[in-house]
Amino acid sequence: MPRLSPDQRQQAIGRLDARQSVQQVVRAVGVNVTTVYRLQQRFHATNSTCDLRRRGRPRVTTAGQDRHLVHQHQRDAFETAANTARNTFGVHGQPVSARTLRRRLGGQNLVNRRPARRPVLTAQHRLDCLARAQQHARWRHRDWRRVLFSDEKRFCLEPGDGRIRIWRRPGQRFANINILQHDRWGGASVMIWGAIGVSLQVGPVVFLNVGQGRGNGVNADRYINQVLLPYVVPFVQRYRNCLFQQDNARPHTARATQDRLRHNSVNILPHPARSPDLNPIEHFWDIMQRRINALARRPRTAAELPAAVTQVWAQVPQQQINHLVLSMHWRCATVINAQGGATRY
């Protein structure tokens, strides 16, 4: 027979108080006679229709041990529950299972998630990033409108971003229909340069003569001839008040590149090493990658990849780009609060 719901219990007690017989209550509620008798006895004994608290299985850990386990995982977030359980013994020396430990951690609002990935930061990296954020903390929208943020990005045919999910039954993880076949290094790729600002975009530029081998990447010569001279210098000559930001990649810091920038009077906004938090174009690349993944017909060959990147670039709303650039005020404030460390950006 099904268990009585709280409303049915109140209804049964109400009928009994109205001097209806147990048989009448049984027919009205639709349960066993014994259920109604026990409900009546419980109500007279406790003045409540709720179930009595059951003792259940005794806990294998004490409250003090529970607090110690939680503090241990808060101190070392990378410690696994299975390893902690192997080194923990409960009441009377009983072993503690990993499942029990996970329940204890979950009871204190600790959940198991993938760690955030950020660049390796030394003390000097943190100081430089903090100094940059403090220097521009008072900049407002009119100041950030002058900045042109630039960067390179490699787009692959098979991105390994971990966002792909499938629906499957238990035990069918390695069924052919559930296997995602991919090249270990992402397959064919294309290197793209681009720059964004408020109400403006420059690019995308597909680097030519760039291969997979050592020395076939983006060097200072390719950066100067394929990006600076045809795109950046004409843009700066048109917008004299513009500040150009680039990261500290070797093609950008090479002596030939720096000489070319000085010769053409390009004003550079310094960018500290390993501080993607302070470059909104990093989020722009993520938006583009998501849109490429969502294409109805994704690129299948290396020849189709540049066209797909150019198509998606043109589809990103300028309003969304403006929002990324004008978030620099909040980015600087967040970096200052983190003392130059990793942030949500």
Rank of each mutant, 00 (worst) to 15 (best):
R9I: 03
V25A: 02
D7A: 10
A45H: 01
S21L: 03
L39V: 00
Q24P: 02
T34M: 11
G30S: 03
S21C: 03
V22R: 15
V26Q: 11
R38I: 00
Q23L: 11
A12V: 07
A45E: 02
D17W: 06
V25M: 05
Q10M: 13
A12K: 09
L39R: 03
V26K: 12
L39N: 04
T35C: 08
V22M: 11
Q24K: 11
R15G: 04
G14M: 12
I13R: 05
L16F: 07
I13M: 14
Q41W: 01
G30P: 09
T46A: 11
Y37M: 02
D17E: 06
A45I: 00
R19W: 12
A28G: 06
A45Q: 02
Q20E: 14
V29G: 02
V26S: 05
R9M: 06
V29I: 14
N47F: 06
A28C: 07
L16W: 10
Q10D: 15
V31L: 05
V22W: 03
V26T: 06
V31Y: 11
R27N: 14
T34W: 09
R19A: 14
T46K: 09
Q24I: 02
N47R: 13
V25Q: 07
N47K: 11
N47P: 01
Y37A: 00
F43T: 00
G14S: 13
Q23R: 15
T46S: 10
S48Y: 12
V29W: 06
V31I: 13
T35I: 03
R9L: 05
R19D: 11
F43Q: 01
I13L: 15
T46W: 04
S48A: 12
L16K: 05
V36P: 04
A18Q: 15
A45F: 00
G30Q: 09
Q20M: 09
Q20D: 10
V22G: 07
V31H: 13
S21M: 04
V33K: 12
D7H: 06
G14W: 08
V25D: 07
H44R: 12
Q23F: 07
Q41T: 05
A12R: 06
V36R: 02
V31C: 15
A28F: 05
N32M: 03
I13E: 13
Q40I: 01
Q11W: 13
Q11H: 13
D7Q: 10
Q8W: 04
Q10V: 11
T35G: 04
T46F: 12
R9A: 08
A12L: 08
Q10K: 14
I13S: 11
L39I: 01
S48I: 04
H44C: 01
V26I: 08
F43G: 00
N47T: 04
L39G: 00
V31P: 05
Q41E: 12
L16Q: 12
S21P: 08
L39A: 02
Q40M: 03
R38S: 02
N32E: 15
Q8P: 00
N47M: 10
